[in-house]
Simulated scan of single mutants.
Amino acid sequence: MSSDPVSIAVIGGTGFYSFLDEPEEHAVETPYGAPSAPVAVGTVAGRRVAFLPRHGLAHELPPHRINYRANLWALRSLGVTQVLAPCAVGGLRDEVAPGDVVVPDQLVDRTSGRTQSYVETGAVHLPFADPYCPRLSAAVSAADPSVGVGGTMVVIEGPRFSTRAESRHYASQGWSLINMTGHPEAVLAREMRQCYSAIALVTDMDAGVEAGHGVGQEEVFALFRKNLERLKELLTRTIAELPDPRGCSCSTWADGIELTYDVPGADA
Protein backbone atom coordinates (compact mmCIF):
# COMPACT_ATOMS: atom_id res chain seq x y z
CA MET A 1 0.00 0.00 0.00
CA SER A 2 1.24 3.52 -0.76
CA SER A 3 2.69 5.38 2.23
CA ASP A 4 0.57 8.43 1.35
CA PRO A 5 -2.12 9.03 4.00
CA VAL A 6 -5.71 8.06 3.28
CA SER A 7 -7.81 10.64 5.13
CA ILE A 8 -10.90 10.75 2.90
CA ALA A 9 -13.45 8.03 2.18
CA VAL A 10 -16.55 7.65 0.05
CA ILE A 11 -19.18 5.11 1.10
CA GLY A 12 -21.19 4.22 -1.99
CA GLY A 13 -24.91 3.58 -1.71
CA THR A 14 -27.52 1.87 -3.88
CA GLY A 15 -26.17 1.46 -7.40
CA PHE A 16 -22.80 2.97 -6.45
CA TYR A 17 -20.35 0.08 -6.29
CA SER A 18 -17.11 1.55 -7.68
CA PHE A 19 -15.48 4.96 -7.83
CA LEU A 20 -11.71 4.74 -8.23
CA ASP A 21 -9.53 3.98 -11.25
CA GLU A 22 -7.03 1.13 -10.75
CA PRO A 23 -7.47 0.97 -6.97
CA GLU A 24 -5.49 -1.05 -4.46
CA GLU A 25 -7.84 -3.38 -2.60
CA HIS A 26 -7.38 -4.13 1.09
CA ALA A 27 -9.21 -6.80 3.04
CA VAL A 28 -9.40 -5.21 6.48
CA GLU A 29 -10.01 -7.31 9.58
CA THR A 30 -11.92 -5.56 12.35
CA PRO A 31 -12.96 -6.44 15.92
CA TYR A 32 -16.56 -6.31 14.66
CA GLY A 33 -16.31 -8.75 11.77
CA ALA A 34 -15.94 -8.15 8.07
CA PRO A 35 -16.86 -4.87 6.37
CA SER A 36 -19.18 -4.85 3.38
CA ALA A 37 -16.29 -5.40 0.93
CA PRO A 38 -12.54 -4.98 0.67
CA VAL A 39 -11.66 -1.29 0.93
CA ALA A 40 -10.46 0.15 -2.37
CA VAL A 41 -7.81 2.89 -2.19
CA GLY A 42 -6.81 5.18 -5.04
CA THR A 43 -6.23 8.79 -6.02
CA VAL A 44 -8.90 11.41 -6.72
CA ALA A 45 -8.02 15.04 -7.49
CA GLY A 46 -4.48 14.37 -6.30
CA ARG A 47 -5.61 13.02 -2.92
CA ARG A 48 -5.61 9.48 -1.55
CA VAL A 49 -9.20 8.28 -1.17
CA ALA A 50 -10.78 5.08 0.15
CA PHE A 51 -13.99 3.67 -1.30
CA LEU A 52 -16.34 1.17 0.30
CA PRO A 53 -19.63 0.00 -1.27
CA ARG A 54 -22.13 0.06 1.60
CA HIS A 55 -24.23 -2.85 0.28
CA GLY A 56 -21.30 -4.95 -0.97
CA LEU A 57 -19.86 -5.31 -4.45
CA ALA A 58 -23.03 -6.92 -5.84
CA HIS A 59 -25.61 -5.34 -3.52
CA GLU A 60 -25.79 -8.54 -1.50
CA LEU A 61 -26.40 -6.76 1.82
CA PRO A 62 -29.85 -5.32 2.59
CA PRO A 63 -29.85 -2.19 4.79
CA HIS A 64 -30.63 -4.02 8.05
CA ARG A 65 -27.81 -6.56 7.50
CA ILE A 66 -24.96 -4.11 6.79
CA ASN A 67 -22.12 -4.33 9.31
CA TYR A 68 -21.94 -0.59 9.93
CA ARG A 69 -19.52 -0.91 12.84
CA ALA A 70 -17.02 -2.91 10.78
CA ASN A 71 -17.30 -0.46 7.88
CA LEU A 72 -16.47 2.69 9.87
CA TRP A 73 -13.77 0.97 11.95
CA ALA A 74 -12.10 -0.38 8.79
CA LEU A 75 -12.00 3.08 7.23
CA ARG A 76 -10.64 4.67 10.40
CA SER A 77 -7.92 1.98 10.62
CA LEU A 78 -6.65 3.18 7.23
CA GLY A 79 -6.48 6.77 8.52
CA VAL A 80 -9.83 8.08 7.28
CA THR A 81 -11.08 11.12 9.17
CA GLN A 82 -13.56 12.48 6.58
CA VAL A 83 -16.44 10.47 5.13
CA LEU A 84 -18.68 11.43 2.21
CA ALA A 85 -21.75 9.20 2.10
CA PRO A 86 -23.95 9.24 -1.03
CA CYS A 87 -27.31 7.53 -0.55
CA ALA A 88 -30.65 7.06 -2.28
CA VAL A 89 -33.58 8.71 -0.50
CA GLY A 90 -37.27 9.21 -0.96
CA GLY A 91 -38.83 12.65 -0.88
CA LEU A 92 -41.53 13.40 1.71
CA ARG A 93 -42.42 17.05 1.06
CA ASP A 94 -42.78 19.23 -1.99
CA GLU A 95 -39.58 21.17 -1.32
CA VAL A 96 -37.71 18.23 -2.87
CA ALA A 97 -38.25 16.32 -6.13
CA PRO A 98 -36.73 13.29 -7.89
CA GLY A 99 -33.30 14.17 -9.19
CA ASP A 100 -32.51 16.64 -6.41
CA VAL A 101 -29.29 16.24 -4.43
CA VAL A 102 -29.46 17.38 -0.81
CA VAL A 103 -27.06 17.54 2.13
CA PRO A 104 -29.37 17.15 5.15
CA ASP A 105 -28.57 18.75 8.48
CA GLN A 106 -30.75 16.61 10.77
CA LEU A 107 -31.51 12.91 11.24
CA VAL A 108 -34.37 10.99 12.90
CA ASP A 109 -33.86 7.34 13.81
CA ARG A 110 -36.82 5.02 13.22
CA THR A 111 -34.79 1.81 12.93
CA SER A 112 -34.96 -1.17 15.27
CA GLY A 113 -32.55 -3.94 16.15
CA ARG A 114 -29.37 -2.35 14.80
CA THR A 115 -26.22 -2.14 16.89
CA GLN A 116 -25.68 1.61 16.90
CA SER A 117 -22.63 2.18 19.07
CA TYR A 118 -19.09 0.97 19.74
CA VAL A 119 -19.73 1.59 23.43
CA GLU A 120 -20.22 -1.71 25.24
CA THR A 121 -19.10 -0.72 28.72
CA GLY A 122 -18.57 2.40 30.80
CA ALA A 123 -19.91 5.94 30.53
CA VAL A 124 -19.34 7.39 27.05
CA HIS A 125 -22.23 9.57 25.91
CA LEU A 126 -21.92 10.98 22.41
CA PRO A 127 -23.07 14.56 21.72
CA PHE A 128 -25.17 14.28 18.57
CA ALA A 129 -27.41 17.34 18.41
CA ASP A 130 -25.98 18.11 14.97
CA PRO A 131 -25.42 14.74 13.31
CA TYR A 132 -23.60 15.91 10.17
CA CYS A 133 -20.34 17.82 9.83
CA PRO A 134 -21.22 21.37 8.71
CA ARG A 135 -17.74 21.86 7.25
CA LEU A 136 -18.08 18.81 5.00
CA SER A 137 -21.66 19.69 4.03
CA ALA A 138 -20.53 23.20 3.09
CA ALA A 139 -17.79 21.76 0.89
CA VAL A 140 -20.33 19.57 -0.94
CA SER A 141 -22.73 22.45 -1.56
CA ALA A 142 -19.89 24.74 -2.66
CA ALA A 143 -18.87 22.20 -5.27
CA ASP A 144 -22.28 22.43 -7.00
CA PRO A 145 -24.72 25.31 -6.48
CA SER A 146 -27.65 23.05 -7.38
CA VAL A 147 -27.15 20.97 -4.22
CA GLY A 148 -29.83 21.65 -1.63
CA VAL A 149 -28.72 22.41 1.90
CA GLY A 150 -30.62 21.41 5.04
CA GLY A 151 -33.57 19.21 5.85
CA THR A 152 -34.29 16.22 8.06
CA MET A 153 -33.72 12.65 6.92
CA VAL A 154 -35.73 9.98 8.72
CA VAL A 155 -34.13 6.54 8.63
CA ILE A 156 -36.41 3.50 8.67
CA GLU A 157 -35.50 -0.13 9.24
CA GLY A 158 -36.39 -1.53 5.83
CA PRO A 159 -36.05 -3.48 3.70
CA ARG A 160 -39.70 -2.72 2.95
CA PHE A 161 -40.82 0.72 1.85
CA SER A 162 -43.24 2.73 4.00
CA THR A 163 -47.00 2.42 4.09
CA ARG A 164 -48.95 5.49 2.98
CA ALA A 165 -49.90 6.20 6.58
CA GLU A 166 -46.28 6.06 7.73
CA SER A 167 -45.12 8.26 4.88
CA ARG A 168 -47.80 10.87 5.58
CA HIS A 169 -46.93 10.83 9.27
CA TYR A 170 -43.24 11.46 8.58
CA ALA A 171 -44.12 14.31 6.20
CA SER A 172 -46.45 15.84 8.80
CA GLN A 173 -43.50 16.09 11.20
CA GLY A 174 -41.73 18.38 8.75
CA TRP A 175 -39.19 15.75 7.71
CA SER A 176 -38.26 16.01 4.03
CA LEU A 177 -36.22 12.87 3.23
CA ILE A 178 -36.53 9.14 3.99
CA ASN A 179 -33.80 6.52 3.82
CA MET A 180 -32.82 3.06 5.15
CA THR A 181 -29.03 3.31 5.70
CA GLY A 182 -28.23 6.69 7.27
CA HIS A 183 -28.45 5.29 10.80
CA PRO A 184 -26.33 4.12 12.57
CA GLU A 185 -23.70 5.07 9.99
CA ALA A 186 -23.57 8.75 11.00
CA VAL A 187 -23.48 7.91 14.72
CA LEU A 188 -20.63 5.44 14.33
CA ALA A 189 -18.62 7.89 12.24
CA ARG A 190 -18.89 10.43 15.06
CA GLU A 191 -17.82 7.80 17.61
CA MET A 192 -14.82 7.09 15.35
CA ARG A 193 -14.07 10.85 15.53
CA GLN A 194 -14.72 11.24 11.81
CA CYS A 195 -16.35 14.10 9.94
CA TYR A 196 -19.36 12.75 8.05
CA SER A 197 -21.79 14.18 5.51
CA ALA A 198 -24.68 12.41 3.82
CA ILE A 199 -25.21 13.28 0.15
CA ALA A 200 -28.83 12.37 -0.54
CA LEU A 201 -30.07 11.76 -4.08
CA VAL A 202 -33.87 11.93 -4.20
CA THR A 203 -34.95 8.98 -6.35
CA ASP A 204 -38.73 9.07 -5.80
CA MET A 205 -41.54 10.65 -3.85
CA ASP A 206 -42.54 8.35 -1.02
CA ALA A 207 -45.80 6.40 -0.87
CA GLY A 208 -47.98 8.86 0.98
CA VAL A 209 -46.90 11.98 -0.87
CA GLU A 210 -48.74 11.45 -4.13
CA ALA A 211 -51.42 9.21 -5.61
CA GLY A 212 -50.43 6.05 -7.46
CA HIS A 213 -48.97 2.65 -6.72
CA GLY A 214 -46.26 3.83 -4.31
CA VAL A 215 -42.53 3.64 -4.66
CA GLY A 216 -40.92 0.54 -6.19
CA GLN A 217 -37.38 -0.79 -6.22
CA GLU A 218 -36.79 -0.53 -9.96
CA GLU A 219 -37.57 3.18 -10.20
CA VAL A 220 -35.17 3.87 -7.31
CA PHE A 221 -32.36 1.91 -8.98
CA ALA A 222 -33.05 3.45 -12.39
CA LEU A 223 -32.92 7.05 -11.21
CA PHE A 224 -29.76 6.41 -9.21
CA ARG A 225 -28.08 4.88 -12.29
CA LYS A 226 -29.13 7.91 -14.34
CA ASN A 227 -27.42 10.25 -11.85
CA LEU A 228 -24.34 8.17 -11.06
CA GLU A 229 -21.87 10.14 -13.19
CA ARG A 230 -23.25 13.38 -11.78
CA LEU A 231 -22.62 12.13 -8.24
CA LYS A 232 -19.09 11.04 -9.13
CA GLU A 233 -18.34 14.47 -10.59
CA LEU A 234 -19.73 16.13 -7.46
CA LEU A 235 -17.58 13.94 -5.23
CA THR A 236 -14.46 14.64 -7.28
CA ARG A 237 -14.97 18.42 -7.08
CA THR A 238 -15.71 18.18 -3.35
CA ILE A 239 -12.64 16.05 -2.61
CA ALA A 240 -10.40 18.50 -4.48
CA GLU A 241 -11.42 21.34 -2.15
CA LEU A 242 -11.87 19.63 1.23
CA PRO A 243 -10.32 21.73 3.99
CA ASP A 244 -8.12 20.38 6.76
CA PRO A 245 -10.33 18.66 9.38
CA ARG A 246 -8.00 19.23 12.32
CA GLY A 247 -9.80 20.91 15.19
CA CYS A 248 -13.28 20.01 13.97
CA SER A 249 -15.75 19.23 16.76
CA CYS A 250 -16.54 15.91 15.02
CA SER A 251 -13.24 14.75 16.54
CA THR A 252 -12.59 17.08 19.46
CA TRP A 253 -15.83 16.05 21.25
CA ALA A 254 -13.81 13.14 22.70
CA ASP A 255 -10.89 15.23 23.97
CA GLY A 256 -10.52 14.59 27.68
CA ILE A 257 -12.97 11.66 27.63
CA GLU A 258 -11.79 8.14 28.41
CA LEU A 259 -13.26 6.16 25.53
CA THR A 260 -14.04 2.52 26.30
CA TYR A 261 -13.56 1.37 22.72
CA ASP A 262 -10.70 1.52 20.24
CA VAL A 263 -10.41 4.37 17.72
CA PRO A 264 -7.56 3.11 15.52
CA GLY A 265 -4.96 5.72 14.70
CA ALA A 266 -6.59 8.43 16.80
CA ASP A 267 -3.36 9.10 18.68
CA ALA A 268 -1.13 8.97 15.61
Rank of each mutant, 00 (worst) to 15 (best):
P35V: 08
S2I: 03
P86C: 10
L75M: 07
P62S: 12
R47H: 14
V49P: 08
A266F: 00
S77E: 11
R135I: 11
A200R: 02
A50L: 13
G42E: 15
F128G: 01
H213Q: 07
D21P: 05
L223A: 03
I239K: 08
E95F: 03
V147Y: 09
C133E: 04
L259Q: 00
V102R: 10
Y17S: 04
V263M: 10
M205N: 06
G99A: 09
Q106V: 08
G256Q: 05
R164H: 06
M1Y: 06
G113R: 14
A254C: 10
E229T: 12
E25C: 10
A198D: 07
G148L: 13
A222H: 10
C133H: 04
Y132M: 11
Y68P: 05
V103R: 11
Y132V: 00
L52N: 13
W253F: 09
S18R: 15
H183T: 10
T14D: 01
V101P: 07
A198Y: 11
S249H: 06
R246C: 01
R190E: 00
Q217P: 00
C248M: 03
S251R: 04
A34H: 05
E157T: 10
E120W: 14
Y261D: 01
R65L: 14
L92S: 07
A88E: 05
G33Q: 06
A189C: 14
L136C: 02
V140Q: 04
V101Q: 04
R246W: 13
Y32M: 03
P145V: 14
D206P: 12
M192C: 08
A142H: 14
S137M: 05
I178F: 15
T252F: 08
A40E: 15
V80C: 10
C250D: 02
T152R: 14
L234K: 08
C195A: 13
E241V: 01
V108E: 09
R47G: 12
T115F: 02
D21H: 13
A268T: 12
T115C: 08
N71S: 11
A268I: 01
A70G: 03
M153E: 11
Q82T: 05
L259R: 02
S117K: 07
F161E: 10
R110S: 06
F16L: 13
S137Y: 06
P159Q: 00
S2C: 01
D109Q: 02
S36Y: 05
P134W: 14
G113W: 12
A40S: 15
V10L: 11
L201N: 02
V154M: 15
F16R: 10
V39R: 09
Y132D: 05
L188E: 04
A171I: 07
F16E: 10
G158W: 05
G148F: 06
W253T: 03
V103K: 04
G247V: 03
E258A: 14
L61Y: 02
H169Q: 07
E219T: 14
T30F: 07
G12E: 09
I257Y: 00
P104G: 09
E60F: 01
I239N: 04
P104D: 11
P264Q: 01
V124K: 07
Q217K: 02
G265D: 08
T43G: 04
T121I: 06
E241I: 00
G122K: 00
E210F: 03
T115S: 05
N71T: 03
S2H: 11
G90F: 09
A200L: 07
V108Q: 06
G33P: 02
F19G: 04
V80Q: 09
